[in-house]
Design a protein around this nucleic acid. Structure first.
Lengths: 142, 142
DNA sequence: TTGAGTGCAAAACATTTGCACTGAT
DNA sequence: ATCAGTGCAAATGTTTTGCACTCAA
């Protein structure tokens, strides 16, 4: 656990959301001005393989990083890319059951699932982002 | 609907899985040798906004394209990136209910969800990919 | 004839990597 | 003194874009 890795972990944990590598870079840079983006990526990779954080990919082009490692769901704003933890408990029983069915039918070894809710965050709603979207468009966006 | 767009749509529909733009490019190229990758991307974008196909992003670095536009789930192999349709019906009632709860608590306007099962496909299992993975590692991978 | 759409090449962007150097042990 | 880890810069891989040209209506 080098000084850099420690600061990266701290800044991710206090970020409160699910930042990109670049957003973490900007925060860490304020404390370690000479750190490079390569070091950010290398340490995030390390932290992921140590199981201290998680890497997320979903309906957005960049990787996001998550300080929580317990199973939980996310909700993504399709307009601004904001990601928040979904404040609900995982739907364990019905979905684990589906995992078994899917594993059996596809011959995959299934060991998990990801559930992502999609919509528009309250700020984007205020800006009227969803106004012009028909139900079809909304479905498309998802 | 130009000739290029038509061929791209046809090749996606007969692909049988969830190809990347580049995989579609290779197929289309056999029929339209002078087509460019830019045209592939532009037409896939158009087809997505027309609601004729879907763009997927999940636990893999590249965009994937899906000829199906009805709501359904996917299962991804974390080793080789293969994506298949999950052969189960969407868990409508319990998850739509969760959408309402999440929307209420987060103030998001929620209009959909994505469920992705993760695991290893049968071919990767045969290769022994999962052998060395502890339950923790599997969880991490997810 | 004309402009929506194309082909091509360059740009943009996120992420990874090679390498010489540094600093904690 | 050593070498795991860093900083830097270049490379990589995917997706987007500017621009001149083409071809179907």
């Amino acid at each position: 656990m080098t000084k850099q890795r420690k600061v990266i972990l701290e800044e991710l944990r206090k970020h409160g959301s699910h930042p990109t590598a670049d957003q973490i870079f900007e925060k860490v840079r304020k404390r370690l001005p000479r750190i490079s983006l390569g070091t950010i990526y290398r340490n995030l990779d390390l932290l992921v393989s140590e199981g201290l954080i998680r890497r997320l990919r979903g309906d957005y082009p960049q990787m996001r990083f998550d300080p929580r490692t317990d199973e939980h769901y996310h909700i993504t704003c399709l307009n601004c890319g904001r990601i928040e933890d979904a404040p609900v408990e995982p739907l364990h029983d019905p979905i684990k059951n589906l995992e078994n069915v899917v594993g059996h039918l596809t011959k995959y070894g299934v060991f998990g699932h990801k559930l992502e809710f999609v919509g528009f965050c309250s700020e984007c709603l205020k800006k009227g982002v969803a106004k012009g979207l028909s139900p079809e468009a909304k479905e498309m966006a998802s």
